[in-house]
Design a binder for these strands. Structure first.
Lengths: 258, 258
DNA sequence: CTGACCGCATTGTCCAGTCAATGCGGCCAA
DNA sequence: TTGGCCGCATTGACTGGACAATGCGGTCAG
């Protein structure tokens, strides 16, 4: 482990540990050597060892549990299925098998709901085509599984169309907020979905209790009525270490392209 | 900037800088104060300032350009549209507007293609339902835009069905590899899409020339024929700082759910 | 037996310093 | 004018140290 290949020592140490994790030599939940042990083993200072460990933590491969040591992280992803909104059942056998593998079966779900009226963030206002100053109702939800926060879902509705409706009540809506919108005369027939991949803001880190090195997927759904009017913007924040996002597609017309 | 709120100094410095970036006080491409300046300004050691900067770099907010200093990062995302495979044109007006905003118009595209025959990685073998030892053909592509690597796309095909076909040639296939598969008698009518959000492996970091703190989306498409036979697994790696993933959905049946 | 307390191993924070690498801008020679 | 070289500001890598925080496990008093 000497300074041959031009790579800095902390890189080489991180690479060595990463390799041990990938090969299974260090299994999930296994304890890594302590900083002091590695300092002696590699003949470097403790800060250099710490820099290597910090890199692995940032990659999401390792967690630190003071003062027990560093441990190989175990992943338990869960399926997020945007299509669940519009499709009831008919999945292909492949999708069924996939769902079974990553199902929430046997885990205990819970959610917290909070409804407020606010001036919308700029990006939401733009998607709902609101004039400056127009207000929206927000349903902010945090969903938990086995007591662990799993995702954030904030749904924005133009205040003019949901005022005094069931949507304003901070309770679970059994038949879904989309059905309530439909009853109010705003049935959504089309959505535009955007997905961003990035590191979380400190606020998201806090709300989702994220460890360092956990990226998030931000899923933004804008729902439109037949007339093309946007009536809902839903922002879902999905911690990368806890989700697989999955959906199914079918050929539409019998012609082909790129 | 004293040690009141229990937060470590490097956190407080990082928070202050993050706030200045969010507020626009430090605009994109703006130069941050040098480490020495901040050391004096906050009355801490240089290492502490560096720890704060490292955090911002890891969040993808700041880049360091030695020896010019640290700069606020500018983002220029690009649309990734999985549906492009199956849909030719008919997008809604909303989607059209969105595409225009993030189009590649005026940027210069280029790609490198490499075709090899390998024993597939375990996850690919599983999706293609291959027996141990069965081989696959891989088309590995790196796509560039304005000279910058934009994404990686590795497509795996069972060797038994593509041997000696056009797919084995390391050139661009104008009408698309999917059409070639169709001509060979394996038309795909359905796909299962999975999307993972995570930090890149060192190999991906290298191939995509990623800065630290850039998460990636890993998009895995498995294509099936009418008979439900998997004939293609495409793995696309999308750097989070360079993409928005976007698609459209339509109500299918005139009944509703959650 | 039980509960409170304390020692200890381990990680977290921070410091003051050294030397290396890098790229820009200016200086100087042809 | 032009091309090459060099100084310099700045970040990167690393050291060896100090002290704080934390939770587990064992000890000891009741």
């Amino acid at each position: 482990m000497t300074r041959l290949g031009r790579n800095p020592m902390y890189q080489q140490i991180a690479d060595a540990l990463r390799e041990q994790i990938a090969s299974g030599e260090l299994a999930p939940d296994a304890k890594l050597p302590t900083e002091a042990e590695m300092r002696d083993q590699y003949g470097v200072s403790r800060e250099t060892v710490r820099k290597a460990l910090a890199q692995l933590v940032n990659e999401g491969l390792v967690v630190s549990a003071r003062p027990q040591g560093h441990f190989v992280r175990r992943r338990r992803p869960m399926v997020f299925r945007p299509q669940a909104e519009f499709r009831k059942r008919p999945y292909s056998p492949e999708m069924d098998a996939f769902m079974t593998e990553y199902s929430a079966e046997g885990r205990e779900p819970r959610q917290e709901i909070e409804v407020t009226i606010v001036e919308p963030p700029e990006d939401v206002a733009k998607r709902l085509r609101l004039e400056p100053g127009e207000l929206v109702a927000v349903r902010k939800r945090v969903r938990y599984l086995d007591g662990e926060p799993f995702n954030i879902n904030d749904s924005y509705f133009p205040l003019t169309i949901v005022r005094d409706s069931e949507i304003m009540r901070p309770e679970d809506i059994g038949r879904g907020a989309n059905e309530v919108l439909a009853e109010l005369g705003y049935r959504q027939v089309r959505t535009l979905d955007e997905l961003y991949v990035r590191m979380p803001t400190p606020e998201q880190t806090h709300r989702l209790d994220l460890g360092p090195g956990t990226p998030v997927g931000v899923h933004v759904v804008t729902g439109y009525t037949t007339e093309g009017q946007p009536v809902r913007v839903a922002v879902t924040v999905l911690p990368g270490d806890r989700h697989v996002i999955s959906y199914e597609r079918q050929r539409e017309a019998p012609n082909e392209d790129a």
